[in-house]
Design a protein around this nucleic acid. Sequence first.
DNA 1: ATTATCTATAGATCTATAGATAATGC
DNA 2: ATTATCTATAGATCTATAGATAATGC
Lengths: 226, 226
Amino acid sequence: MSRSRWISDLHWVRSRGQARGQRTRSALLDAAEALFFEKGIDATSVNDVVARAGSSVGAFYHHFRDKKALVYAFFDRVTAEFHATTQEATDPARWEGASIVDVLEGYLDFALEMGRDRPAFHRASLEVSLRDPTVHENLAEVRAELDSALTQLVLARREEIGHPDPETATAFALEQLRCMLSSRFDDDLSRTPFEGKSDQDFVREALASVCAYLQIAPRADQEESP
Amino acid sequence: MSRSRWISDLHWVRSRGQARGQRTRSALLDAAEALFFEKGIDATSVNDVVARAGSSVGAFYHHFRDKKALVYAFFDRVTAEFHATTQEATDPARWEGASIVDVLEGYLDFALEMGRDRPAFHRASLEVSLRDPTVHENLAEVRAELDSALTQLVLARREEIGHPDPETATAFALEQLRCMLSSRFDDDLSRTPFEGKSDQDFVREALASVCAYLQIAPRADQEESP
DNA sequence: ATTATCTATAGATCTATAGATAATGC
DNA sequence: ATTATCTATAGATCTATAGATAATGC
């Protein structure tokens, strides 16, 4: 990934020529991302995007072949970030010496932060992946990647698990957490009793539930919960 | 609810006059429901609806003031059913002598069937309640009703629960189940390992998880799981 | 006489293109 | 000389209405 200083300098020089263009492109993508979250993709028109970006329709179609290309570019950008963060967050070296509960707590924190940070990701995924196989496929890929990495981290610590079938139990437990996280992000939708609770309460109960199911001894700092 | 034979006869005679109109209206709603599931609400045009219903635009606007009114009518119909089924399914008399696990298994079966039976409900809810406060409110109401009824059924059996805080634990466990159910319905979206498993496997693990978390002794027929 | 339905179309968007104009890079 | 941007607009939908026609109920 890292370039030599020479090539990187060369690139820097050449990219000055495209500086304005790249800025416009980024501004369009940023505006689209904000609008995709606020109104959804379908309800966002090209005019909305260029208006918010302070650009024009012509510039838009210079950078993107059509509206679909904008949507793809948006998903490319966000899934690339997702992928990179996943790689970093699930690096086995980072979790050396950590217990299953540590790993899962890290996962919950990471996912909650991601959800707050890029709210458009979740909402746009719901909207598009129902009808666009390409986007659907890409999203499934990054999700599977995270899921697989987490599964490996957990199963590498299988001696902690008392459940008779660690593979099945891990798969189920991870899906359970994923579902609850997902539900936490469309807060417009679900007003269940627990939704009012803080992230901290949510993480605590989720970990307690998973520990009970996998038959893991809870961590010392969580044993004395009221 | 039940009418005397006389009034009911009278109504039957009078309603003949509106028979054709009601049939058209129902056909429009049925067509809309199918299309809302297939393409989503936004992507469904009035023309699509009347084409599938074998009707015409004029007839459509005779029955519905505008497209929004159609969406409302759809939600009215489906939430009314949801409400009635919930009432019947959570009647305390029906569950006399049942354990918490029985109740929750009944809930899962009921919800899975509902989800398969009226797939448009879940999808349309996701799409609309993000932007329409009225629909959002109505949906929140029927969901809260089910949630509250289930909570009461479970807490009426609180002596089965070993968890130190039965109220919190019940709220969390129910939300957990609801999230997983919800995730099971948008099967286009989530391709996690467990999604390939049968409903039966899903119900079994979900009940096992809840039992472990609430600290309930699992049922006799589930103790010998492999 | 009233209610339900049809066809045709006006008016509002929204996507995408064409052609002219301005900014960069050699 | 090339790349980026702008304004203006054509063409495709899609919602909703108008006005004419057909079916019901007294």
